[in-house]
Simulated scan of single mutants.
Amino acid sequence: MADSAAPTSRPTTRFSDTLRAENAETWEAAATHRFVTELFAGTLPDENMATYLVQDYRFADGFMALLGAAVATADNYDSRHRFAQFLGEVAGDEDTYFRQAAAELGADTSVPDTRATEGFKQLFADAADTRNYAAILGVLLVCEWLYLDWATRPENRDHGTAENGYPTRHVHAEWVRLHDYPGFHQLIDFLRAEIDRAGARSEEDAALARKYFRRTVDLELQFFGEHR
């Protein structure tokens, strides 16, 4: 009598991995953009870094409102609590960095919004207005995961001038550090687990996550391109 082999289970691809794979070309272009490599090398002109930070800070208000929408639409206390913590981090260390870096670089804060900045403001408002957790996560995951990716990539670190692969100058190095510390890595793990769970709830949730994930990746690449 032949031995009957136990059925083997096939590994399941995570929804978050699928979303990234579906946008791989744009994601790669953003994560390895000239803006990023020059940031690590310390050769990014001050004018470019200054305008980038000014524009990024322009949609910080909308981003915090989107985090508030995540708190409101999450379906359990632990998730709400984590988003509340993250909201405090954005309003704390990151806000301090923006203000200090803008002053150091002599940034002109009167410049008009760029097209990508206008796009991000509209994106955050649109996602919040859906009152759909999966849609909101589709935006938040890209905004954080893409930054973790470029901040930790070995090929980007190869351009770094400090021993740890970071840039030497503080205004550059601190922007990398804000997207590469243990708590930030844990945040990405949390966001990925949440969108994996939310995307599995229904076809509608998965479709909204896809739609907003793609819009965000496209805007991230456009934003880098506007500043280098």
Rank of each mutant, 00 (worst) to 15 (best):
A2Y: 07
A2S: 07
D3R: 07
A6D: 03
T8P: 01
S9Y: 04
F15V: 02
T18G: 09
T18K: 15
R20C: 01
E22C: 05
A24R: 15
A24D: 12
T26G: 05
E28R: 08
A30Q: 12
A41K: 11
A41Q: 03
T43N: 09
P45S: 10
P45R: 12
E47N: 05
N48V: 00
A50E: 02
Y52A: 06
L53C: 00
Q55Y: 04
D56C: 08
R58V: 08
L66Q: 06
L67H: 06
A72S: 08
A74Y: 09
A74N: 07
N76H: 11
Y77F: 15
H81F: 03
F86D: 08
L87G: 13
D95N: 09
A103W: 09
D113W: 12
T117F: 09
Q122C: 02
A125F: 12
A127E: 11
Y133H: 14
G138L: 11
G138Y: 06
V139R: 10
L140R: 02
L141D: 02
V142A: 05
W150C: 07
T152H: 10
H159Y: 14
G165E: 12
H170G: 00
H172E: 14
H172Q: 13
A173I: 04
A173N: 06
A173P: 06
E174G: 01
W175T: 01
V176F: 03
D180Q: 14
H185T: 01
Q186H: 07
Q186P: 00
Q186L: 01
L187H: 05
I188D: 10
I188Q: 07
L191K: 03
R192D: 03
I195R: 08
I195T: 05
G199Y: 08
A200H: 00
A200Q: 04
R201S: 03
D218K: 14
D218M: 09
Q222Y: 04
